[in-house]
Design a protein around this nucleic acid. Structure first.
Lengths: 201, 201
DNA sequence: GTCTATAGCTGGATAGAC
DNA sequence: GTCTATCCAGCTATAGAC
């Protein structure tokens, strides 16, 4: 995009935040959460260990940035998946399949969302992003259930099923199947349809 | 059980393994997986940092012992829950509710099962325990589905839903409800029934 | 089986120069 | 905004005495 020659001299990037987060993501993917350290992310980004502290207060702040990315990317994916069909029930099934696909495409981000162990009070944007996601899913659910409480339970039930399938998929439970991803997507969508039938009034 | 006076002198327990695992569980519950260290577990058990190494090859071996406990305890719970009803569909619903209850009663053990990040090849007993659990659940599922593949999918679909509800419960998604545990249990059982209806032939 | 002592390492975070 | 240098803390794992 920009006409910058990359890394003109030995140091200073144009966008250290981005590079650090990519590095952290790779660490997350290969070594798990415990493997995400400021020191190693710095090394991979090619900067000193002190540099990241100009961008993140501490390690948790870096993790929080990753979680926020995860929420943002998920929301976009679900929005697109749901926009492809018209029927509210099918939209929820499309969400369920997209949820599984996100876990498969971005296992590190997916896992992080539920395992970061961050102090939610310290990072309000995370709670907000979660709310926004839920709100988006509530639209089709409300179209199916007059009752708001029922709609909420339907969304959560479908998300729970999709989450479970996603976890099983990333844990390798379907490793013996020919196409684990398609299988899990299909199961999640099927479960969503069954739940829609059971919860809608 | 035994007539031992506890801790006759200043050191050496009758059962260091047990004490270490309890300490590790408490660390797990309060500080998360990263907080489980041989050093801190030793301190809490009241022994030196070297003592645990006579019982566990390394930190992962200690974690593996905890995971094995988790599997054993779960299996027992599900066995009991399923034995209380006769109908195969109700047995699966009872399992789903028991799954959620386990997560609520033993959040540390529950979380660990899916987040330990252990090398499965190194700890074959873990894979075996997982298989045994699955086999137990397959009994009612096979009574409902003639097809074995269908039965397998049904078990996984129900477990996935229960898992999702359990995760949401432990993450505090239902914190605004009067009785989060009952709600989640009920949702899991309802989903199980819906899935039985959808999958059984 | 447990202790003491210790080697070796890695990480978090800061101060101060540029 | 990044570097160098540094401090301090914590953990893993082993050796050797008892």
């Amino acid at each position: 995009m920009s006409p910058n020659v990359k890394r003109p001299s030995g140091h200073h990037h144009g966008d250290l935040r981005r590079v650090l987060e990519e590095a952290a993501l790779e660490l997350l993917a290969t070594k798990g959460i415990g493997g995400v350290t400021m020191a190693e992310a710095s090394r991979r980004a090619g900067v000193s260990v002190a540099a990241p502290y100009k961008h993140y207060a501490d390690r948790d702040a870096l993790l929080a940035a990753l979680v926020l990315r995860a929420f943002t990317e998920q929301r976009e994916r679900y929005r697109i998946a749901m926009a492809e069909v018209d029927d509210p029930g099918e939209q929820l099934a499309a969400f369920a399949a997209a949820y599984v696909r996100f876990a498969a495409d971005r296992p590190a981000l997916f896992t992080l969302t539920f395992a970061a162990g961050l102090d939610k009070a310290r990072f309000p944007p995370l709670a907000e992003a979660g709310q926004a996601l839920f709100a988006e899913l509530s639209v089709p659910a409300r179209a199916l259930c007059g009752d708001d409480d029922r709609a909420r339970r339907l969304v959560l039930a479908i998300a729970a099923c999709a989450h479970g399938q996603a976890v099983f998929l990333t844990e390798g439970v379907f490793a013996d199947l020919a196409d684990p991803l398609s299988g899990a997507e299909h199961e999640a969508a099927t479960a969503a349809a069954a739940l829609v039938a059971a919860y809608a009034e």
